[in-house]
Design a protein around this nucleic acid. Structure first.
Lengths: 225, 225
DNA sequence: GTCTGTGAAGGTATTCACAGCC
DNA sequence: GGCTGTGAATACCTTCACAGAC
């Protein structure tokens, strides 16, 4: 007897990174009243090739119909499941500066599978303030229950990031999204993802070099000889 | 006669994505008064393996000394050059909500190679406001000179993102950093990087599934039979 | 005929392990 | 002895191209 549908664990990393995009596009298509979508269309709207998209989706199982395409509702459900959004995740945002406030009021979350449960700041002048209808609390108020799944978001300056990470870990947070420009040192079982604008800008700067570099021309000629 | 140092263009993608982190760590080490650093130390502080780090750096050329390590100043200079930060890039941020404001006042930029030159919002009530000592202008004020290198940052709601991208492209912006949860359609020569919190949370949710899933246990047993 | 699912091929990235230089 | 630079081996990801289901 063979295994019916692929276990979550064997979905390739690269695929996992793209599933959220597909899910978002599927949601948009659904809200336009569509009920099925072809790999070609979904791929184009997601900015990937159709072959890649089909490979990605086939890692979850065979949920398409040949000659027709994918049923949007069914596919959304399976991607949601595969991503672990069947359960709700509680989210704690630390640092209620402009960035933390932006994240707290970002419509994109809360929508599905994420519950922004704690807005945290240690500044007594900020504690108690209302942001997006929710009041800011002190870090000590972060007491997740034993079986609660929590994602901690760090939106404080780089100098304080490690300290916040340590406190997260102490109360049992095992998934951290770090917006501070700092590399966090954490135990193996803790997952960290970092997002940093300076890094992104530098990567773009490199890619943007394609356009001619006037002062490099002489060297270029040499290479072409 | 062989080519002296590697041309920027043949640096692997994965390496480019990590160079900014190395650069940041080098800066921190330098400000602590260190002058050289070993691959082992730099790798640990950057969260990568030392073999990977050495491979990455060797793509830029041989700037290390065997038995000693890397000279921090020299290495920083070469990474900076390789990333195209020899020139300054002008940055335009569109959307002065909380996120745009956070980005505009983020210390990490402006520091090196990036000049936040335009803070843009089309809302007449926002135009003229001062943010981080700089006044907000209307999009029409974005008129980069012909040879100016510009990175455009989109910090508006998803519904307006494509429109902003189109306007960027019309005035000659070829590198875009998109914080809105939307896939942008752009010509081939335009580089786009997208950062979206919902996507990051979903990826973390998947990775965080490692911890036991009580309600999946029966299925697990079946698989092990 | 249309469109998915997937082996096979090709390309890219990571790890290993050690030669070479200080 | 210590540490870098790099071929060789491995693992991973993408693309191709077509068989198979509708």
């Amino acid at each position: 007897m063979s295994i019916e549908h692929a276990c979550r664990r064997d979905i390739p990393d690269a695929t996992v990174n793209r599933l959220p995009v597909y899910l978002r596009v599927l949601g948009e298509s659904a809200s336009k009243g569509q009920s099925t979508i072809s790999s070609e269309t979904l791929a184009a709207a997601s900015g990937v090739s159709s072959a890649k998209l089909r490979k990605d989706l086939s890692a979850l199982g065979s949920y398409g119909v040949r000659g027709v395409g994918y049923d949007i509702a069914t596919l959304s459900k399976h991607i949601t499941e595969a991503l672990g959004l069947g359960h709700t995740w509680s989210v704690a945002i630390v640092g209620m500066g402009n960035l933390g406030t932006a994240l707290a009021t970002y419509g994109g979350i809360g929508v599905k599978g994420f519950d922004i449960k704690w807005l945290i700041d240690d500044n007594p002048q900020v504690v108690g303030r209302l942001i997006g209808g929710q009041s800011v609390v002190h870090f000590d108020a972060l007491k997740p229950s034993k079986d609660e799944r929590v994602i901690g978001i760090i939106a404080v300056p780089a100098a304080a990031a490690q300290q916040v990470a340590d406190r997260f870990i102490k109360v049992g947070v095992r998934s951290i999204l770090n917006f501070a420009p700092a590399v966090l040192v954490v135990p193996d079982e803790v997952q960290v993802r970092g997002v940093d604008m300076a890094t992104e800008l530098q990567i773009l700067a490199f890619r943007g070099l394609g356009a001619r570099e006037p002062h490099e021309t002489s060297e270029m000629k040499e290479l072409m000889a």
